[in-house]
Design a protein around this nucleic acid. Structure first.
Lengths: 356, 356
DNA sequence: CCACCTGGTTGGAACGATCAAGAATGACGC
DNA sequence: GCGTCATTCTTGATCGTTCCAACCAGGTGG
């Protein structure tokens, strides 16, 4: 015992504080001394409790609770070469768009990473030079893994991260490489659009238009295919009922005017809430009442859709479930277990409000 | 030189890779060997370049660039007891509200913390037991400082963090303790409401109502005071023109109906965009055209305000500047320099759209 | 000639955890 | 009785960085 006491004296300088002094963070050695065991035993109590005898475990746990000890993350990281941090590139919602749907996603991500003992680290991802941001994080071993969003735009990050041997899970399918092996989670956009289209068809609409994105966005084309498929299934004509453009509000407005001039659709299915809000603006300008004269369905169930008057019907993405799926895959990666099902495709739901 | 080579051999095991092998992260020792100097000199080159002779500095910088070295953050943290991480408690936007205005704030925060060499770490703040979340972060020395948001609700965290001796900057004034000494940044809500009220008065409105929050939210009372002050200045009557309640959409809707029945205001100034959207809904239900029959101004300039039809005029908070102010104060705290002006009150602006 | 700077550099120790190996104990089989 | 083994706990080394005290050369002052 003398030796141990001596070690204590060395480790914890005469701070004048008693054992529970919160101003001096307790270390493994502090806890070990209090519990009358060695450092390693305390370490085992935390990381591998099954190794300890029941009685010892109890002693150690009591000491930990008494001192309010939690392991120093830096020291742990240094030794294990793992930071228990997940990197999340953070881009703000663009002004003038309906909503940052990332909000719900990020929150669930934070909550469920915490449950597996991880935290979420935000970092700015330069739009033009995304690699640099990732590279810095990797070089300084700042994070153990990444959550990659916005993978639809050709996703150069995915290719880079894979080449670099970094761990990551993508929110978004690898559109340009369907045989990719990395884990991903995504929402079935085609099913969402189909849901919206079928909903309008069920309400008796026969001339249902699609307001989509430009052709080079696979996610937009995917959603469009759901509209197209449903129209075909119902035997409805689709000629000159499909618009495409950038996803802005202004585009939605103009495209709606054009469609109304051309084919007088009674229902509009939109690739995003932003576009749908543009459509509502066009209807407003023409004195048409959404929901009564023309039905509109958006996509994303943004806050704007929820608070707009009239309330905008919209396809809701299960962002919470997506985050859970992402974290589940992350955990497997981080514990070096195989991810048996790398891809997970979730089904959206339809929220019906006043506009349909 | 023999000794140095020997050390190299020990430090970098026979990985088979050449010096630039990206699979083995270079360390200080690697760089030192390459530049022909000691570890400490490399460390100084990074942290205190002024100490080095110009020639030596050049050599070291070249070696760093060649090897693509960045310091291991865990090792640095362990030694310096600083993590270079800022903790940000993260709550999601509530469903059914106009918008998470945090989005813009967080992005600027991430960008400008990076510029001072810090990263932002999200953590889930339990609404009921906020202290626990902070305590965990502090105990494990996971972050160096916090950014505290939502300080309006009595702000128990602020009191706790101060007692605990933790570093933090608050987004939001210490309402209940005006003499508090901790650094904070906030927006002049009264000025914002005054701006909105004056704007309506300038357009000839004389019966301008206030749709606010419950009395126990000081931030709501602050904004209300701006309305009240401006009404008085203009010699306008305020009797039975002020509504208060929770900030929900439904409250905004009902309060608007009640006001219209009672006093027929021609202008509405709202404490938030959510409330304003509720007001718009009430107008919609009565067949009144916002902007023509009745003017409405919201608060926050949420995405919903931007995309709604008609576009909602709204008071815009300078969230980017707030984030900059927060980071500036953080930096002073972290470098142990005094914060000469702990409080910073910023002025909002008015974005005029269709509803006014 | 020695003490004392000053600018530049150096090796050893320390931060607090985990890893790898080893030691004490008792149980078991031959 | 002896070796083997499993269980349980301990000891020294180590991760990569920064702090500390000291060193070195060369100039200055006493």
């Amino acid at each position: 015992m003398e030796e141990r006491d001596a070690e204590m004296a060395r480790r914890v300088p005469a701070a004048g504080g008693h054992a529970g002094d919160p101003s001096v963070a307790p270390t493994l050695a502090t806890v070990a001394a209090r519990a009358g065991v060695s450092r390693q035993t305390v370490s085992n109590a935390i990381n591998n409790p099954a190794l300890l005898a029941e009685e010892t475990l109890g002693k150690v746990e009591r000491a930990i609770a008494d001192l309010g000890y939690s392991p120093n993350l830096a020291a742990r990281s240094l030794r294990t070469r793992a930071t228990r941090l997940i990197g999340l590139p953070f881009e703000p919602a663009q002004e003038g768009t309906a909503n940052a749907l990332m909000d719900r996603f990020v929150h669930t991500l934070v909550e469920s990473t915490r449950e597996i003992g991880y935290h979420v680290l935000l970092f700015a991802a330069d739009a033009e030079d995304a690699e640099q941001g990732y590279e810095r994080m990797l070089r300084s071993t700042a994070v153990d893994a990444f959550v990659v969003t916005e993978t639809y735009r050709g996703s150069p990050q995915v290719e880079y991260l894979q080449r670099r041997g970094a761990l990551f899970v993508a929110f978004g399918r690898p559109w340009d490489a369907p045989d990719a092996t990395h884990p991903w989670v995504d929402v079935d956009g085609a099913a969402g659009a189909a849901l919206a289209t079928a909903h309008l068809a069920d309400r008796g609409h026969e001339v249902i238009a699609w307001l989509g994105w430009t052709t080079d966005q696979p996610i937009g084309e995917d959603r469009r295919s759901g509209w197209m498929r449903t129209m075909r299934e119902r035997g409805l004509d689709t000629t000159r009922l499909s618009a495409r453009g950038d996803g802005t509000l202004e585009y939605g407005r103009r495209a709606t005017h054009a469609l109304l001039d051309a084919r007088k659709p009674t229902g509009l299915v939109c690739a995003s809430d932003t576009v749908a809000m543009g459509a509502l603006r066009a209807l407003h300008e023409r004195g048409l009442a959404p929901g009564r004269d023309i039905a509109v369905v958006g996509f994303d169930d943004s806050l704007a859709a929820q608070v707009a008057s009239p309330g905008l019907s919209s396809v809701r993405q299960p962002l919470e479930d997506i985050a859970l799926g992402v974290v589940e895959r992350l955990e497997r990666l981080l514990t070096h277990r195989p991810v048996d099902e790398p891809g997970l495709l979730l089904q959206p739901t339809l929220v019906v409000r006043d506009t349909s």
